[in-house]
């Protein structure tokens, strides 16, 4: 599936929820089921510090594919982190660099990515792109 196909899939999943409460309950479930994050990577290097919640993001790059694992200390943030990992992990650097993210807005979570929220999510997205750019540059020069 392409990045956009996954985004559309997420939008479809959220469309079945009647109200905000169900959406947030689903996010909480997603947060709970997010894959494990290696505690050894909970270091300042991989920490994206927000004022409200913290996010850890760990990239690895093998055979042209970037894999992200991530975590957050707040459960709803973790739920959104899970969605971002689902969209961005297992992609080539070029796919990530060229991606246009629209699902957050479509599922009514735009305020969670506002720069004033300072929950680490916007910075996390930027960081994912930065990693992708770095790997892309590395690829082009190797």
């Amino acid at each position: 599936m392409t990045i956009n196909e996954i985004q559309d899939q997420i939008i479809e999943e959220f469309a079945q929820f009647g109200d905000w409460m169900e959406r947030y309950e689903y996010l909480i479930d997603l947060g709970r089921s997010l894959g494990p994050f290696d505690e050894r990577h909970k270091t300042p290097e991989y920490l994206i510090e927000g004022c409200q919640s913290k996010v850890w993001l760990y990239p690895s790059f093998e055979e042209g594919i970037i894999t992200f694992t991530a975590d957050s200390d707040a459960l709803i943030t973790r739920g959104i982190v899970a969605l971002l990992v689902r969209v961005f992990s297992g992609r080539t650097p070029a796919e990530i660099v060229d991606a246009r993210i629209y699902f957050i807005e479509k599922i009514g979570l735009r305020e969670n990515l506002s720069p004033t929220r300072s929950n680490g999510l916007l910075a996390m997205m930027k960081q994912m792109r930065l990693y992708a750019l770095a790997y892309k540059t590395k690829q082009e020069h190797s």
Partner: peptide, 22 residues
Amino acid sequence: AIHQYDAGMILDKMGIAVRTGT
């Protein structure tokens, strides 16, 4: 053990304005 930001977000959706964080 609920994170303040999680609680604040849900309260906000209920129309309740509180401060969360440090």
